[in-house]
Simulated scan of single mutants.
Amino acid sequence: MGNYVYNNVLLKLSGEALLGELPFGIDDRMIKKISIEVKQIWEMGVSVSIVIGGGNIFRGIKGASHGMDRASADYMGMLATVINGLALQDSLEKLDVPTRVISAIEMRQISEPYIRRRALRHLEKGRVVIFVAGTGNPYFTTDTAAALRAMEMGAQVLLKATKVDGIYDQDPMVYKNAKLIEKITYIQVLDQNLKVMDSTAISMCMEYKLPIIVLNINKEGILKSTIEGKQVGTLVS
C-alpha cells in the first residue's frame, strides 16, 4: 500500500448520490463517475469498503410517515440498498475493479452474507467490499451501518459523500453567504443538531474516535485528494 494519510477507508454513499439529475432511480452517468473515483484510490492500494443507502428508490422513514409499519418500511429500504449495491458492483467491475457485495440480510444468489472475517479477507485480497441492507435491523439508518462497518473493518476514516462541499454554518442551497466549516467536533455536531449523519452514528464515531470527513462526491479527484491528506470538505473529530 502507498504511504498516504489514509490507507483504509469506508465510503458512505447515500442513495440520493446515485440520482444525478434524475428524480428517481439510478443515473448511469453518476454511478460511473463515482466508480471512477473509487477506482482511482483502489489503484493506489487503498483498502476501500462502501456502505450504500437506498433513498433514491425507497426510504423506510418516509414509508412509515405515510402510515406503513416502520419495521416493514425499513426492510423495504434495506432491499433498495441491495439494488444500489448490485448496480455499483456492475459499474466497478466494468472498470476491472474486483468487488464483493455483502448483505446483512442473507440473499445467497446475489450476495454474500455478512461475516466479518470474510469481509476483512476480501479487503486483504484487494477487493472493494460493498455492504448492503444496512445493519439488517429496522430502526437503524445506513449512517449507523456505515459507522459500525467502518469500525469492524478497521477503517481510519469514514468518508461521508454528499452533494455539497462539507458542513456549512447555514444552508448553502438557501444562503449564498453560507461559510464552509473546515473542522468541527462531534459534540458541536450533536449540540447544533447538524444533519450530517444521524446522532447514533455520530455518537459511535465519537466514542471510538473515528474521524468523519464530509465531502462533495461530485468534485473530480475528491477521494484521491482526501487520502493524500489535502484539505477537503469538513473534518468531524
Rank of each mutant, 00 (worst) to 15 (best):
I31Q: 15
I34F: 07
S35L: 11
K39Q: 15
W42I: 06
S47P: 00
V48G: 14
V51R: 12
I52Q: 12
I52E: 13
G55T: 02
G55P: 12
K62V: 13
K62A: 08
S65E: 15
G67D: 13
D69Y: 04
D69L: 02
D69K: 03
D69F: 04
R70N: 14
A71W: 04
A71F: 01
A73E: 10
Y75S: 00
Y75G: 03
M76H: 03
G77Q: 02
G77P: 09
G77A: 01
G77C: 04
M78Q: 10
L79G: 00
L79F: 03
A80V: 07
V82W: 01
N84P: 10
N84M: 07
N84E: 11
L86C: 07
L86K: 10
A87L: 00
A87H: 06
L88N: 02
D90R: 11
D90V: 00
K94Y: 01
L95V: 07
D96Q: 14
D96C: 09
V97K: 05
P98M: 07
P98H: 05
P98S: 07
P98E: 05
T99Q: 11
T99F: 06
R100N: 00
I102F: 03
I102N: 07
S103E: 05
A104F: 06
A104Y: 04
I105S: 05
E106W: 04
M107L: 14
R108T: 12
R108M: 14
I110W: 06
S111M: 09
E112W: 06
Y114L: 13
I115F: 11
R116S: 06
R116C: 03
R116P: 05
A119M: 02
H122I: 00
H122N: 05
K125M: 08
V128Y: 04
V128N: 06
I130Y: 00
I130A: 01
